[in-house]
Nucleic acid binder design. Structure first.
Lengths: 181, 181
DNA sequence: ATCACACATGTCCCTAAGTACATGTACTTA
DNA sequence: TAAGTACATGTACTTAGGGACATGTGTGAT
C-alpha cells in the first residue's frame, strides 16, 4: 500500500506521467521506498480505475500524464492522518551483524570498512542535498520543506550507521584468552 | 535469501527446532528481519533437502531439531564473506515524511509526537538489552559479543530517529507569510 | 478428569516486489 | 540518413512475504 500513497503523494505536487514518477521515485523516494517501473504503471492503472487519479493529458510517445482527483487527495490525507505507521524494518546490514562472530577477523574488518564507507558516502550525498535546499535551490514551498525534513533523516541515519560501523571495528569479538601460566 | 542465512546463522550457535528458531527470530532478529513461522518451516525443509542442515533429533509433539552441516556452515560463511550487502531500505516513517506538507499542522504534531515516543521506547528497549549484556547476562562468547554489536546499532538507530522526530517538530512547514501592510 | 495453554508443524492463498522480456517513438548528433 | 539515446508504457514470470486456517500433543492447574 505504501507505493500507492507514495505515488499519490508525488502527484499531489502536480500532474506527472508514469515515467516521471518512476524517475522521481528512483531519485528521491528510492532510498526509503524502492519501486520499479512495472509496479508503478500497474499501480497507476489501478489508481485511475478507482478514480483517485485521472489522465490529465496525452502526449507524444503514448505519454499519459495523470492528475490527482479530490478523492485521491482525500485518500493520501486519510492515510497520513488515520493509518498506523508500519515500523517494520528490514536491514540486511544489521542482520549480518548478528553473525559477525562467524567471520574471520580480517574479513570482518574489511566488511566494516566497506560498510562505514558506504554509509558515510550516503550521508554525504544527503548532506549535499540538504545544503542545496538550504541554498534555496528547491525554493521554499511546504513541499521543499517536507523534503528537507526527509533528507535530514537520511543524513542522520546514515551518519549514525557509519559511526556504528567504525565503532564496531574497535570491539574485540573473542574474549581475552586466559594464559594458563 | 536473507531469511535462509538468518536461520543458518542461528543454527551455527547450536541445534534448534523450527519452533525455537521462530521464537528467536521474533525476539532477536525480528526487529531487523521479520519472519513468520510458515516461512521458517518451509525454508528449513528446503535447507534440509539441500543438505545445509540435517535433523539432529526428533522429540515429543513432532518436534524436529536441526543441526547445521559442514556445507551449511560453509554457506553462511560464504554469504558473509563473498556476497555484497543489500543496502535496500524500506522505511515507511521516512516515506511519510516526504508528504508532511499534506498534513494539518495539528495532525503532524501529533504524528511526530507518536513517532518520537515509538523510537525512544524502542531505543530504551535496546539499551536495556545492551545493559543486560554488559552485566554479563548473556555471557562473553563471540556470539554474545556479536549480538552486543547488533544491539548497539538498534540503540543508535532508534535514538537518532527519536531525535529526528523531535527536531522535525521545530521545523515550520509554511514559509513566513508576507503581511501585505 | 478436564481444561487451558504452550508446544509444534504445517498448508493455502493472496499480495508485493523484483527481473526479464517486449515494443515503439521522438530527438540529437555524427 | 543512420545510429544512439532518452522517452514511454507495458506484459510475463518468479520469488518473497504476510495472514488465515488446520491439526495435533504434552503439561500443569483446578
Amino acid at each position: 500500500m505504501s507505493l500507492r500513497y507514495g505515488l499519490l503523494g508525488l502527484l499531489a505536487e502536480g500532474p506527472a506521467s508514469g515515467y516521471d514518477l518512476a524517475r522521481r521515485f528512483q531519485e528521491v523516494l528510492g532510498s526509503v521506498w524502492p519501486a520499479q517501473h512495472p509496479k508503478i504503471y500497474a499501480e497507476l492503472n489501478r489508481l485511475a480505475q478507482e478514480g483517485l487519479i485521472e489522465v490529465e493529458s496525452e502526449g507524444p510517445r503514448g505519454r499519459k500524464a495523470y492528475r490527482m482527483t479530490e478523492a485521491g487527495l482525500a485518500a493520501v490525507r486519510a492515510w497520513l492522518r488515520d493509518t498506523e505507521v508500519d515500523h517494520t524494518l528490514r536491514m540486511q546490514s544489521l542482520l549480518r551483524s548478528f553473525f559477525f562472530w562467524l567471520m574471520e577477523p580480517d574479513d570482518l574488518r574489511r566488511h566494516l570498512d566497506e560498510e562505514a564507507r558506504f554509509f558515510a558516502e550516503a550521508a554525504a550525498r544527503y548532506e549535499e542535498y540538504a545544503k542545496a535546499k538550504d541554498r534555496g535551490e528547491f525554493g521554499d514551498s511546504p513541499q521543499a520543506r517536507s523534503m528537507r525534513i526527509a533528507i535530514e533523516a537520511g543524513v542522520r541515519l546514515h551518519r549514525t550507521l557509519a559511526e556504528w560501523a567504525e565503532w564496531a571495528k574497535t570491539v574485540p569479538l573473542s574474549p581475552p584468552t586466559t594464559t594458563d601460566s
